[in-house]
Nucleic acid binder design. Sequence first.
DNA 1: CTGTTTTGACTGACTGGCCAGTTAGTTCAG
DNA 2: CTGAACTAACTGGCCAGTCAGTCAAAACAG
Lengths: 231, 231
Amino acid sequence: MSQEHDTETAFMEATYRALCTHGYADLTMQDIADETDKSKAALHYHFDGKDDLFREFLAYLHEGFAEKIVDHPDGSPVAKLVALVRRVLDPVDDGADQQFNTAFMEIKAQAPYRDGYREVLRRFDADLRSEVADLVTEAIDAGQYGEETDPEEVAEHVLTYIHGTWTRAAAVGADVVTMREHLIDDLLDLLVEGEPVPAVAATAGPRTLDDEDDEDGAACGADADDGVRRE
Amino acid sequence: MSQEHDTETAFMEATYRALCTHGYADLTMQDIADETDKSKAALHYHFDGKDDLFREFLAYLHEGFAEKIVDHPDGSPVAKLVALVRRVLDPVDDGADQQFNTAFMEIKAQAPYRDGYREVLRRFDADLRSEVADLVTEAIDAGQYGEETDPEEVAEHVLTYIHGTWTRAAAVGADVVTMREHLIDDLLDLLVEGEPVPAVAATAGPRTLDDEDDEDGAACGADADDGVRRE
DNA sequence: CTGTTTTGACTGACTGGCCAGTTAGTTCAG
DNA sequence: CTGAACTAACTGGCCAGTCAGTCAAAACAG
């Protein structure tokens, strides 16, 4: 029967890899096809042009993201919250992810110009926000946070801060881990007095407050051609 | 004598306007020239290609930014701090600025790929950070903030949050004013008990906590051509 | 079960348009 | 008349998208 599904999934994965190595701006259909044993024409056979491909890719990404953020470890609400922030910010397990976050920034920056991008990005935003708000509500119910804490406000704050972390990482090479841990400190500062939170420390792993700023391992694999990167 | 300087400045201003209407990604040299009474070839006469033009443009922007952030109103340190945040975030005086912030996001997202971008962006970052840190230090000296406040930490927090605000505004169309006022609330929460801060309220103007999210007046003036934006 | 047709997946070669950058002049101040 | 500041027209390369097939497997006919 049809290989359609497998091939399209393969193209989604290829797009991910191609984004990591080329970035969004100078990614060509050929680059994506090259990550595959298929031809560029096959890409056009399966997707209705580059725009369509990218919209589908965003949806594919969102699917994975939605699963990722609801997958909590055992522990107190605050421990889950901290773990969530750690999971979302800088899953530097393999380093390619860092490249990807950079490319994802480019995509965010394109949202105002391209049909359909913003809608999906809003879903990323809304999902994460409601997950954070839920956990904060749980934390209040569990007595870890004071009653006066506003879950929506905390969620907004966390979202904005997370976006800022990604942006500064890409723009000036600031250290994601440092910024992430600052955010987590904010979150822990909300704890009611005397709350021990051993679970947090356990889930947290050692506090890695390394220095920031340098890392310079830029992203591009493309050695600059004469003029300017293209698309 | 030579019109060099005037012409080059005119090209810088033209680049600004062209960015507002076309965004970074599909900005062509012709677009910039069209904002001028000069030809595209004149652009190439004055600048060593598109890359060089953009590096100079960033430096030109930075100049204006550096002036802007040190220009404080009279008042207490915290009032100055709040005014600074208001000035930096969303100077929506004319609406074109909103477009520009969007385009500037695109530029930030290109920093990892293009020589020289990151260096200038770091200067934006460093200048704003040290300005904030200085004001926080003043606020501590003036007794508005407690001694235990860490100026560098606050400055980091503010920077990351500001970047996040810009990013969310571009990516999901979140309301800049709402996020900005949340940040200002954070800043005011640091005040020592009983501190009145009338100056802040005065400088601040009315608290505009409008609702967020929608505004949809996307950025692009370019009506989507069939395929995909180029460059 | 065999030969024929259809169809879905895919390819290599091509095309058309776009755009950065160039070049061979032109204009004009000093 | 020299050189700086331009311009109109052109060039070359790149890339999304197209097209005329190929090929294997399914569907079908007898």
